[in-house]
Design a protein around this nucleic acid. Structure first.
Length: 405
DNA sequence: CTGGGGATGGGGCCC
DNA sequence: AGGGCCCCATCCCCA
């Protein structure tokens, strides 16, 4: 709640340092909200968690009141706008108090009641660099309306003075402002400016907690459960809970014994399609993921990533690139050589045209470096040992290659 | 360290 | 618009 509400932010001391003694901080353990109706608070809670606000027009006043009291400026603006539009300027005095540029700001910020509104919590320490030319004139510090840098520009503007279908339906009795939906979708149910062409709803929504843009209609609630930890889908057989029902469905295969993905080459069957895919690479022997440093090949991309993160390829087990062509070594060679204290005679950014020739040239000191790094062997002949090892390895690979051919 | 299975979260498509 | 289903990338765990 503190992420979207100035009131809660101050209540729980999140802005201490900014507000000084205004924050109640730890002294408040029980918060009684007499001034907000349960329905309005429920709507605001829903907004805090899902960035979606559903309001009956009859409850709009209560939600507006609650949003003002709790300092949820974007919701207050949205309610104020929808009331102003549907009730034909019920409060002209309030309207007159707005700065002249206010309505223009609203259009830019999409802070219209039935159009998308995305609260973006910005860190109090983050510089206030308004995007879309917007800083909330009346809003709490740190709260931006649809100013997130991740939001595509196409979603941050709507055609002026083109009331959406929802706006019109809202005027007819029920308004269901979908706060957090895309600009394009909010305007006329997907109609884009001017063309009137229906655009398939992809509905990118920004998570109010992590600011991540979630693509796909109806996917934000699913994402929000990763923050709340809510696992509403429970296995009736073993009681294990899941955040998603499709994961529960796959889990149930354990109990039913269903393995719908059989291997065509062996009796193995799998729970997941991607398990079968991984398995098939074993039959084919394909190892399409090759380490650019040591040229070790892996059947799975994540195994290559793990290999590279572990820096195990820095053992200087230099292998030749896999046929037919190997990757360019430039940066990786420099990294390896410098990592072993070997001077690298390359200008920054220069490419190394024949990395293996250079490697032969420095094989001897590299051997010493490797020996030192590994605890060292005999003080004599280390270079030749390293060199011979490399040569032997090459010969082995040549032999293997000839056999393959 | 690697191979393999499983879990998790995001995106696309469809209803 | 929301949800189901599927695929994919990534991570974790274990042998």
């Amino acid at each position: 709640m503190a992420a979207v509400s100035l009131y809660f932010r101050r209540l729980f001391g999140a802005e201490e340092g900014e507000d000084g003694d205004e924050g109640v901080g730890d002294s408040c353990s029980v918060c009684q909200l007499d001034c907000v109706s349960p329905d309005a608070l429920a709507a605001l809670l829903e907004f805090a968690y899902t960035a979606t606000l559903t309001i009956r027009s009859s409850g709009m006043r209560e939600v507006l009141k609650g949003a003002q009291l709790l300092g949820i400026q974007c919701v207050a603006d949205a309610c104020r706008d929808i009331l102003g539009e549907t009730e034909m300027g019920e409060d002209p005095a309030e309207e007159a108090e707005r700065p002249a540029s206010r309505r223009k700001q609203d259009r830019c910020s999409v802070a219209r009641a039935v159009s998308p509104v995305r609260p973006v919590w910005r860190s109090p320490t983050a510089p206030d660099t308004p995007e879309c030319g917007l800083l909330p004139a009346q809003g709490p510090p740190g709260l931006l309306v649809n100013g997130g840098s991740h939001w595509p520009q196409e979603f941050t503007h709507r055609p002026e003075d083109t009331p959406s279908e929802e706006e019109e339906s809202g005027a007819q009795g029920r308004a269901t402002p979908q706060l957090g939906q895309s600009q394009g979708d909010g305007a006329g149910g997907g109609a884009t400016a001017g063309s009137g062409r229906k655009r398939k709803s992809q509905t990118p929504q920004q998570c109010p907690v992590c600011q991540k843009i979630i693509h796909g209609a109806g996917k934000l609630p699913r994402h929000m459960r990763t923050h709340t930890g809510e696992k509403p889908f429970q296995c009736s057989a073993c009681g294990v809970r899941f955040t998603r029902n499709d994961k529960l469905k796959i889990h149930m295969r354990k109990h039913t014994g269903e393995r719908p993905y059989p291997c065509p080459s062996c009796p193995a069957r799998f729970l997941h399609s991607y398990d079968l895919k991984n398995h098939l690479s074993l039959h084919s022997g394909d190892r399409p993921f090759e380490c650019p440093l040591c040229h070790k090949a892996f059947a799975r991309e994540d195994h290559l990533q793990r290999h590279r993160k572990g820096h195990s390829c820095l053992e200087l087990r230099m292998r030749r690139p896999r046929r037919p062509t190997g990757p360019q070594h430039t940066g990786s060679f420099v990294q390896i050589l410098e990592g072993h204290g070997i001077p690298v005679p390359l200008l920054p950014g220069a490419r190394m045209p024949y990395p293996e020739l250079l490697w032969r040239a420095v094989a001897a000191p590299a051997g010493k470096a490797l020996e030192k790094a590994e605890g060292g062997a005999s003080p004599h002949g280390s270079a030749s040992v390293a060199h011979r090892t490399w040569e032997e390895e090459e010969e082995e690979e040549d032999a293997a290659g000839e056999e393959e051919e």
